[in-house]
Design a protein around this nucleic acid. Sequence first.
RNA 1: GGGCUCUUAGCUCAGUUGGUUAGAGCGCUACGUUGACAUCGUAGAGGUCACUGGUUCGAAUCCAGUAGAGCCCACCA
Length: 895
Amino acid sequence: MAEPTDAPASPAAPATSTAYDPTAVEPRWYAFWEEGGFFRADPASGKPPFVIPMPPPNVTGRLHMGHALQDAVQDALIRMRRMQGYEVLWIPGIDHAGIATQNVVERELKGEGTSRHALGRAAFVDRVWDWKAEYGDIILQQKRKLGDSADWSRSRFTMDEGFTRAVQTVFVRLYEEGLIYRGDYLVNWDPENRTALSDEEVDNVERDGFLWHVRYPVVDEAGNETGEHVTIATTRPETIPADTAVAVHPDDERYRALVGRRVRVPTTDRLVPLLADAHVSPEFGAGALKVTPGHDKNDFEIGQRHGLPVLNIMNPDGTLNEAAGAYAGLDRDAARERIVADLEAQGLLVKTEPYRGTVPVSSRSKAVIEPLISRQWFVRMKPLAEPALEAVRSGTVTFHPQRWANEYFRWLENVRDWTISRQLWWGHRIPVWYHTTPDGEIDEGRDFVVSVDQPAPGMVQDEDVLDTWFSSWLWPFATLGWPDETEDLKKFYPSTVLVSGYDILFFWIARMIMAGLHFTGQAPYRDVFITGMVKDKLGRWMSKSLGNGIDPLDMIEQYGADAVRFSLVLLCAQGQDIKLDPSKFEMGRNFANKLWNAFNVFGRFMEEGRDYRRTRAFEALSLVERWMLTRLNETVEAVDNACARYRLNEALGLLYDLFWRDYCDWYLELVKPAPGEAMDEEALALAAEVYEGMLRLLHPFMPFITEAMWHRLRPRGERDALVVASWPAANAAETDVEAAQLFELIQAVVTGIRSVRSQYNVPPGRRIGAAVSLADAELVPALTAQRRIVERMAGVEALELGTGLAKPAAAAAVVVQGHEVFVPLAGMIDLDAERARLAREIAQKEGFLKGVEAKLANEGFISRAPEDVVTRERQKAADARAELEKLRVNLSDLG
RNA sequence: GGGCUCUUAGCUCAGUUGGUUAGAGCGCUACGUUGACAUCGUAGAGGUCACUGGUUCGAAUCCAGUAGAGCCCACCA
């Protein structure tokens, strides 16, 4: 295998540009991994399995930031476990996305001046397959740009042959178990796509509308109007022709006498009963409700209770049918207008008031949903929900963060039957067959047959297809070959963790748990990690219509995939939504750049092709080296701990500090040689050792640059790759807490001295004297041995150490961890000028304070000024006193 | 109507089972380009942890309530 090279030909050659360029590095290393087969899982492996089912993106989908976030999380987990010695499998694939895909191809046909109806079913489905062949792989290609280490050889499609078999098996089995039934019920009807939808596919949106108050004339036994009226309130006057009753509350005194009588439905001659039902709210409107069982869910239930007829006045396309009498043929909106106008003309419209209420719309087409009676297939959910509830209650499945379990419980406890049939052409055909009459019509008089294959000549298959989720809910095991007992299924089922957004908790996650338990007897995964959703910088959903989307591919182009992943994971805290702005990726880019450049500090002294290895024991290392290794080992432990709790942002934050703060700002600054000098081999070996440790730890989060640097760091064999290198283990033997504490004291002393230098504007190159008066005599020898660190990092000439030292004249003093640090300033700065400057500032401040105090002493001010103004003045005075105190100390420091 | 989440520095947000002086990135101020990195370094300014009360030796953290923002669910037409 040819190994890519990113390094200049000679390691010692000065780089012309110091900025890291990911576009030159990332594609080559992805090819290296893929060609090396590092992502492929082996069912025969003896290693413990670690499996993540990738939520399959829609075949029509383009990579968006949500994918980028979730893939960054999943890939980090996958890569980490791979390095930890698990047999990992990340199963990728594509969802056929029934409605979405059918719509896309239909739009294409429309552009060509034709339609699916003109093409016919078989030709249309062929056309969709063609479309899939051409575009279906795009999103998986895009995912490779992110660096996803999925096993592409196992990529699946929810309508491939095996999946079709799984879906059919499941349908037949559920039917035989009595968990699938067909019936005429009120379903959510999308008049635009002309299909039924499940409850989860319907959004309730608030809209401004009107509430119409309509009088229904009361009639006597003979059917003649008595002159009495009942006034109902409705937001949907177009459904009046379908009314089969008017209802009032049983305890409503106003109507007690009228209950049992009949009323005439306006716009029709129909006489319907006035009945009492507890569902009616006496406070709403005039307390009477028109009952329309054919077009309203609640009314349907009232109708069931009272044995009312169900009238359907609507066609599947949203126009009114013959049952609507004079309004037949009108669109539902036009019908509303006409009916309101007619009511007004007849004097039956009492009033019209503005009303804001919720309207059900299709989550996909956005069309207003029409509750419509139709014959559909349903899954009985209660029996499936019980075990799924128990699995989470008992801890067999754990949610992270845990609060999502509550949402899950609430949904499952109130779950309703699932409408699974869709009046589409693209999807899994329902495996049900009907006898036909001699003229080719379905013979409703004879029983249908549930069967995968045509049971008898002449029988025709159900026209409908299944809801897309009816295949996706089988994802974790159907992808592994179920219903066959495959090697993959034995090794890799159940999965370990599912990573997903909360938006598909009910659609997918809950249903997968139900399906897994029911069909395999095992929950499909142990953990569910719910991520937040990626929003725009104002917290709005990213959408095409708002044009506020941030394209991950653009961001990868601009900042690099490592940077995109790094920033997303760092921002992904415990299920909180991410408000994203492109500038956030600068964080990741800068980090990658720093990682790239840090290597040069020691890498330029390394001979090409040589493998630098430490020979010294830990105890023989310098203080800074022991501190560095201690920090590394502590961080390994903390990172492992954070990742076990799915706190990847925390883990990455720890690595950020380890690399930037500890390794670059302190360790490298101390071990890098002075100009003209070189680093010795032991120092090089240790610098490389720590750097390599960090590459391993960072690899799950930034796979590309770490792999590239890992190969530059040492000579590697052909099959060597960081992607399969071992994960660092926290080494207790190379952890020295005391050394770390001593080094931290030194850091504090250095910072204290730097602070003084900065405050007094000591020129940067100027070496100064300093003394530390330690509170603890035992520290004197320890610190004396390390004085060179302070001298180098703080620009100190000769550090004096002792206990009970007196503060020299003309010196600044700071207290550090209870020790006193003195910095003589004589000769370092112009003392007279500094004294004069301080004196000037003190005088100025005193004048200001005097003014404020005078104001506060003025009783007129105190009594008349608003309280907050007085408070602010008091605060000003306090601040001024504090500043004065500081300045006076500074002045006295100078003697 | 029910439930959930959020409110911490100018901005965007972390903050592990309550425990020293509440942190980061960006922005801001001053200084700095001597051989890693200006996509950088050093130092610094900046916080009533929304508000009120309670528990505690001790509260950003736990409890109760209030206010504001957002999300999910639900059959007041």
